[in-house]
């Protein structure tokens, strides 16, 4: 999997490169829009991460150029503005996505992986299984080591989301968005409460604690 990062801020570019490389991707970096176009025309990338504010050629024009050249690489747009520009939405071709700065790398990684999965049309599984934990997407039955677990709808949604991202950290913002469809931070930590409830049902009585907290980042469902 090869990713193009078009970002002019050296530090951000550097941590993106390192992080993505650690996650197993081959990463190319372009420091301005024109260089970005050149790279994208040379190599068929699986995903491109493009900043909007770029020297020489801004991110939106860059994407427009790529689309003109019939390069349909899914793009994640990085924007410093909180409200998403309508033009970004206009450019979105199905798989594209956007993130606002400052973003958590964990979230960026999750979105990159989601784009790749979508682009490769991975077939939708009917059940998820992580170690001794199983979740049936059709009957919505959950069991750990054969013992059925009763979950309420939001608990189920959270577990499904964690299982789909097993081994990867998911942030509170991502949970809010996927479990409740909220795009703002509630003041009291409703996510913490939900996670601790789910943890009570999944991990109580087991030695191996599946749901782990990564302080300052989010939560992760342990694979091993």
């Amino acid at each position: 999997m090869r990713i193009l990062v078009v970002e002019d801020d050296k530090k951000i570019a550097s941590f993106l490169q390192k992080g993505l490389a650690q996650a197993g991707f081959a990463v190319d970096h372009a420091a301005n829009g024109e260089q970005g176009v050149k790279r994208a025309l040379e190599v068929a990338y699986d995903v491109a991460i493009i900043d909007i504010m770029l020297p020489k050629l801004d991110g939106l024009s860059l994407i427009a150029r790529l689309r003109e050249a019939k390069i349909l690489t899914p793009v994640i747009v990085l924007s410093a503005k909180r409200s998403v520009d309508d033009r970004v939405k206009g450019l979105q071709s199905g798989g594209d996505d956007y993130l606002t700065k400052p973003f958590s790398f964990v979230e960026l990684l999750a979105r990159v992986q989601a784009l790749i999965r979508r682009a490769h049309h991975e077939s939708e599984p009917t059940s998820l299984r992580i170690g001794e934990l199983s979740l049936d997407l059709l009957t919505r039955e959950v069991a750990r080591a054969g013992t059925p677990i009763e979950l309420q709808p939001r608990e189920y949604a959270l577990l499904e989301y964690l299982m789909r991202n097993a081994g990867r950290v998911v942030s509170k913002t991502m949970i809010l968005e996927h479990v409740w469809g909220y795009d703002f931070d509630p003041l009291t930590n409703v996510v913490d409460v939900l996670v601790s409830r789910l943890r009570n049902k999944i991990d109580r009585g087991f030695d191996a604690k599946l749901i782990q907290t990564r302080r300052g980042m989010g939560y992760v469902l342990n694979v091993s």
Binding site: W180, T188, V190, V193, L194, R197
Partner: peptide, 13 residues
Amino acid sequence: ADAVELYQYVAEE
């Protein structure tokens, strides 16, 4: 109802 649902568990706790 959406908001109540969001805070359902917090209130229960």
